[in-house]
Design a protein around this nucleic acid. Structure first.
Lengths: 147, 147
DNA sequence: ATGGGTGCAAAGGATTTGCAACATT
DNA sequence: AATGTTGCAAATCCTTTGCACCCAT
């Protein structure tokens, strides 16, 4: 029995049939934990797979999210992005530069699968923090001192 | 000293200059706690204010959110909506029908203003649950039993 | 008269759709 | 052959922008 790698395993386990494109996209997410947008993923894979189309990236990312092989993040209006890390963790988004940062040390909401509240079946939890990231905070401070 | 109502107070307190349109939109949010989209708000006010334009609704809702007179909610991809309730509470979104439900009884993340993590200044926290709402769960159950 | 607020029409982007070509079993 | 996957082009939808008009101070 051949031992396939992590990326392949993730697809199989999630019930997503592997293909060259799907493998590449899943792999991209896992090797680029920067919460890329659809377009980032597309741009990042264009060299490897010159025939790749945006449509496929859209479809595949949606597919991965539906199968819980990735997480769709929609903190920011008009800035959907994806996270290959499906372990519970908190996201921080900077209101100024739009950057998204993982906060692993924060107590992430424990995924309590299929807990029900008022009949509503909970399958996922996401905790977002919003504010000013370290870089932007430093910049603002510098500007204030300059003035 | 005249005593103005809640809607008016909210605008003033938030530093938003009242106007007929702004008052109507703020009022709509407070009287329709259903997390309306921009378009819902627009449709809902067209009768009252026939000259109202979508642009104004967009601008005003953004303005209200910026002044913390309302909350912008972007759980769903491409489905931005607004909540006039600015008290901390948890949102539940149904993956099937897209409905958003308030969960007041859940422990909402306590807003810890200006706490800093790794230099990132936290100004807001939002906790989302995603899953299947009571209605959709019931429907699914019925369908299974039918088959 | 001046500054902010509003509304129209047009522009801009992101995402989806329909469909034909292709790959894989 | 059959089924599922991909990719192009076009369509669609949401949101923003530029600008002129209007209202209130």
């Amino acid at each position: 029995m051949e031992q396939k790698n992590e990326v392949y395993q993730r697809l199989i386990k999630s019930g997503v049939r592997p293909s060259v494109q799907r493998y590449a996209i899943m792999n991209y997410l896992l090797t680029h934990p920067i919460h890329p947008t659809v377009d980032k993923v597309y741009q990042g894979l264009c060299d490897q797979i010159p025939t790749l189309s945006r449509t496929t990236v859209y479809n595949t990312l949606r597919l991965l999210a539906e199968h819980n092989a990735a997480q769709m993040i929609t903190i920011d209006d008009h800035h959907v992005c994806y996270d290959g890390n499906i372990n519970p963790h908190v996201h921080f988004i900077c209101k100024k530069c739009g950057k998204i940062i993982d906060l692993f040390d924060e107590k992430a909401p424990r995924i309590r699968k299929h807990v029900t509240i008022d009949g509503n079946v909970i399958e996922e939890e996401q905790l977002y923090y919003k504010g000013l990231c370290a870089d932007c905070a430093a910049k603002e401070k510098a500007e204030r001192e300059e003035a």
